[in-house]
Design a protein around this nucleic acid. Structure first.
Length: 281
DNA sequence: AAGAGACCCTGGATGC
DNA sequence: TGCATCCAGGGTCTCT
């Protein structure tokens, strides 16, 4: 499940290879992945186009084309983007192949077929309204507090809301809540100022750690060369239910928040907030 | 407006 | 061994 650190790793891997390359052909094995325009317009609009840039916004990848348009991709749950040679053996679950000059290929693989592709004139046509980039200076505790104001939903659900902060998903939300000592079911608008500040710092910490470890590969995530990341070895609570909390030894628990699994330490992340003035865990 | 729930998908795990 | 069922979950959409 690629989240910000995984998408960032992929972009970092592919950017030096793709920049300056020309897309010579597009082969669609699963045309339904094309969200816009129609399939023919998508292929014709890409064929012959030189790639002039590549960037990440939230969990989206945008390739800037010579024409001024953008090829936008979202990997959703199981998508991967692989830098390959045309002569390399085929990759399982390849849904789209972007053939490139020089005998190279950019392969989009996706087991569950949730990933989507767009070819747009303007990034806003593909990207929904997204909250601040968490690794930008703009993502401050004040900004997070503002986004959580009036939100009665569980804090875990709000952290995964891309309008609150862009790029955080299930894994890093669980990890950030643990580091901040905040229970995932706490009402978002019930967090104290100091807790919101801790949460902001924890989000930055876990995302930066994820990037340093080149992403979390619990199952399908692969980087731009098809290799696993190592952050799954560094997570503190995600998918560790039943194992001892790394801080206090209490068994990690799993619950469901907003139809998604949530992992937490019932001791370090109490359901009720600590009294004002008590030291943070 | 916010939040809850359905939906899209399929490999792998589990159950009988 | 073989078949059926369940589960994971990001984001979008609909409904309340």
């Amino acid at each position: 499940m690629p989240e910000l650190p995984e998408v960032q790793t992929i972009v970092g891997d592919l950017l030096p290879h793709l920049t300056g390359r020309t897309i010579t052909d597009v082969r669609l094995a699963w045309p339904k992945a094309v969200a816009a325009p129609d399939v023919e317009g998508f292929v014709l609009g890409l064929r012959g186009q030189r790639i002039v840039g590549m960037e990440r916004r939230g969990k989206y990848i945008a390739l800037a084309l010579e024409s001024g348009r953008y090829l936008v991709l979202h990997l959703k749950m199981t998508g991967a983007l692989l830098w390959r040679q045309a002569s390399d053996p085929p990759d399982r679950f390849t849904r789209t192949v972007f053939a490139l000059d020089g005998g190279h290929e950019l392969r989009f693989t996706d087991i569950r077929k949730f990933g989507r592709l767009w070819l747009v004139d303007d990034l806003a046509q593909a990207l929904p309204a997204l909250g601040p980039e968490p690794l930008d200076g703009a993502f401050t505790a004040e900004r997070l507090a503002q986004a959580l104001k009036g939100r009665r939903a569980p804090i875990k659900a709000c952290l995964c809301d891309q309008k609150v902060v862009a790029g955080v998903g299930n894994i890093y939300a669980d990890e950030a809540l643990f580091l901040a000592g905040v229970h995932p079911l706490r009402r978002a608008d019930g967090l104290r100022r100091a807790e919101v500040a801790r949460l902001r710092d924890s989000i930055v910490t876990v995302l930066e750690q994820g990037i340093r470890n080149r992403g979390t590969s619990f199952d399908t995530y692969r980087d731009g060369h098809g290799n696993k990341g190592s952050n799954q070895l560094a997570v503190r609570v995600y998918q560790r239910d039943g194992e001892p909390c790394p801080r206090c030894g209490t068994a990690i628990r799993r619950t469901v928040v907003g139809q998604r699994s949530a992992h937490f330490c019932p001791n370090c992340q109490p359901r009720r907030p600590l009294k004002r003035g008590l030291a943070a865990p």
